[in-house]
Design a protein around this nucleic acid. Structure first.
Lengths: 207, 207
DNA sequence: ACAGGCTCTGACCGATCGGTCAGCTAGCGT
DNA sequence: ACGCTAGCTGACCGATCGGTCAGAGCCTGT
């Protein structure tokens, strides 16, 4: 009787890039919930159904994986900010910007949550620094130079609150409260109201 | 010439409990910024100026350290909620509750940030589960049964936004924006405004 | 002077970390 | 039939992880 060790059974085809996408998605979930430092390549591999070596075949390192996972979100955020800066500020352009931003939050909730809550501890990683610079520019754009403490709190509350509510809040307060169609208008209403008093560039005083 | 290895130089007195407090404070900073899973006992020991063995002398395990670090904050939050539940709801009691809550956020920002952003990944650890239950009760109390999606978003935004703004936001948007005396009234105004439309228990409809 | 406890430490443990490497297998062009 | 490459893997590396343990140094009571 031959031992016949284990029969490798080398998985169905898995046409190249789908594997990479699976790994990216799995890694993102882990990074957002356990943190980058708290996530091991073994965990990602196990959760996605591959070996640790496979993860390192598709991505040069753990940090490169983080980069590839976050870059699309950062690119998108940058595009939104540039588009806003390219137009002169008005109630209309501002409203369009808030709309863009809500769409961004809904589409990239996990990415946002990841670099919002870990940018201090991951300083030095290029994609994280890029995101950090963007957020500072975002803050400076919405509440510029002379903005009051209250204005800055409004912005921070909207940003951090949205990231929390759509990730942590939804999965442990009320599991998946509602579908996107219901969340979007509610989020838009609350954030618009929250940011309404923050001064517009061309109208310096509000109080 | 005797080798005279290194001269241990056994630290100044450090009267017992002060060491434990130093370690707690250091550990809290690390847990809040790098995450519990991402913080090693060695890091905590180094940052506090002790050896890893010392940390494990004062605390039975890494998890026990987390417990001791978070418990005071959870106790305080529980007391605030109980006090609120013990009175019949009115505009006055609600306002007092929001005041208590703001004080809590300001005093325990790091603790709040820690269990707000890591409660999913640390599920199973008693103090984390306690905090999780409290937050759900808090949410159910403020926006009970029939609350709309928008109301729940208002609560989540206030909670997660405050935790973010006072920790991550302040240390990388604008380093220590302002002293507590300036932050408190601003935070109070914004959060009061944010939660204002959320229904009060005795007045079921608002729209 | 001595005993005993409190604080703190280095040496050490098995497990796991991120990462390297040689090699296996399936599919494809020729 | 052949070799080549892409996708994937286990074995292995040094470093670090959380945790144990046997003391060393100090203070205090007697």
């Amino acid at each position: 009787m031959t031992p016949e060790p284990v029969l490798p059974q080398p998985q169905p085809p898995h046409n190249r890039q789908s594997t990479s996408l699976e790994l990216r998605a799995t890694a993102l979930e882990q990074f957002a919930s356990v943190g980058f430092a708290g996530t091991s390549l073994q965990q990602i591999a196990d959760a996605a159904g591959y070996s640790k070596s496979s993860v390192l075949y598709h991505f040069a390192s753990k940090e490169a994986l983080l980069d590839e996972v976050l870059t699309p979100a950062v690119d998108r955020l940058e595009a939104i900010l540039e588009r806003f800066l390219a137009t002169e500020e008005s109630a209309l352009s501002r409203s369009r910007f808030v709309n863009d931003f809500i769409d961004f939050i809904l589409e990239f909730r996990l990415e946002l949550h990841t670099f919002i809550n870990q940018s201090q501890s991951l300083r030095g990683i290029p994609v994280i620094d890029r995101a950090g610079v963007l957020i500072v520019r975002l803050s400076d754009t919405l509440c510029h130079g002379d903005a009051s403490t209250e204005d800055r709190i409004r912005f921070g509350l909207a940003l951090g609150g949205a990231a929390y509510t759509l990730v942590a809040g939804m999965t442990f307060l009320g599991e998946e409260i509602a579908p996107v169609e219901e969340i979007r208008p509610a989020l838009l209403a609350v954030i618009t109201e929250l940011l309404a008093p923050v001064t517009v560039r061309t109208a310096p005083s509000r109080k």
